[in-house]
Amino acid sequence: MKQLFLVFISSTLLGCGASIKSNFDAQSKPLTIEDKVAFLDIHHKVPKTAKKLGESKFGDSGFSIDCDFNSNLVKARKLARQNGANIVKVTEKKTPDLWSSCYRMKIEYYYFDGNISEIPQYQLQIN
């Protein structure tokens, strides 16, 4: 009985994160932790010379926690760095509602060979 309880708790905890599906058509050299990554919300423009590397979809796995807007962006930044992208662009977002406690988002990843600090962007809220 104790083993069954441990299996249930383990599977519940592992299934609590947001569902993330990603697809990268191109990759660049991974970025370091020191490399800046810009967050562009829906209303922000991607620079014309930026190269699209991939996209992802953040959803709800059913018992999801830690899937608010900022948490999803932090996860997206990690994916971006792993694949050499320095711009995270939100293309679609659905706020939490009766059916889901998570932000559901579509994100595109870009590499921009320029100063990303000069791009108008979303400032990540740190608690």
Rank of each mutant, 00 (worst) to 15 (best):
residue 51 K to S: 10
residue 26 A to M: 10
residue 11 S to I: 15
residue 21 K to E: 15
residue 30 P to T: 00
residue 17 G to V: 06
residue 33 I to R: 15
residue 41 D to Y: 07
residue 17 G to W: 09
residue 5 F to Q: 15
residue 18 A to Y: 04
residue 49 T to Q: 14
residue 20 I to V: 11
residue 32 T to G: 13
residue 6 L to E: 12
residue 30 P to A: 00
residue 61 S to R: 04
residue 44 H to Q: 08
residue 69 F to H: 09
residue 40 L to M: 03
residue 19 S to D: 13
residue 54 G to D: 02
residue 11 S to M: 15
residue 56 S to A: 12
residue 7 V to D: 10
residue 27 Q to V: 10
residue 67 C to A: 13
residue 15 G to A: 15
residue 35 D to I: 01
residue 30 P to G: 02
residue 40 L to T: 01
residue 24 F to D: 02
residue 50 A to L: 02
residue 8 F to I: 14
residue 11 S to D: 09
residue 52 K to C: 06
residue 47 P to S: 08
residue 56 S to G: 05
residue 51 K to V: 12
residue 40 L to Y: 01
residue 45 K to H: 11
residue 28 S to V: 03
residue 53 L to R: 06
residue 36 K to C: 06
residue 16 C to P: 01
residue 34 E to Q: 14
residue 68 D to S: 10
residue 7 V to G: 00
residue 58 F to Y: 11
residue 41 D to H: 07
residue 32 T to E: 08
residue 49 T to W: 08
residue 62 G to S: 03
residue 65 I to M: 06
residue 28 S to C: 04
residue 18 A to T: 09
residue 58 F to V: 09
residue 40 L to H: 01
residue 45 K to W: 05
residue 5 F to L: 15
residue 9 I to H: 00
residue 32 T to W: 04
residue 61 S to P: 01
residue 37 V to C: 04
residue 66 D to V: 08
residue 18 A to I: 02
residue 31 L to Y: 09
residue 8 F to V: 14
residue 12 T to L: 13
residue 43 H to Y: 14
residue 30 P to Y: 03
residue 65 I to K: 05
residue 59 G to S: 14
residue 68 D to F: 08
residue 19 S to M: 14
residue 67 C to T: 03
residue 4 L to D: 10
residue 59 G to P: 10
residue 49 T to P: 03
residue 26 A to W: 07
residue 53 L to K: 04
residue 26 A to Y: 10
residue 22 S to T: 09
residue 8 F to Q: 11
residue 37 V to M: 03
residue 59 G to H: 07
residue 27 Q to C: 03
residue 14 L to S: 07
residue 62 G to W: 03
residue 28 S to T: 04
residue 33 I to M: 15
residue 43 H to I: 14
residue 22 S to C: 06
residue 63 F to L: 14
residue 20 I to M: 01
residue 25 D to W: 03
residue 44 H to T: 05
residue 14 L to D: 03
residue 66 D to Y: 12
residue 42 I to D: 01
residue 21 K to F: 12
residue 58 F to L: 05
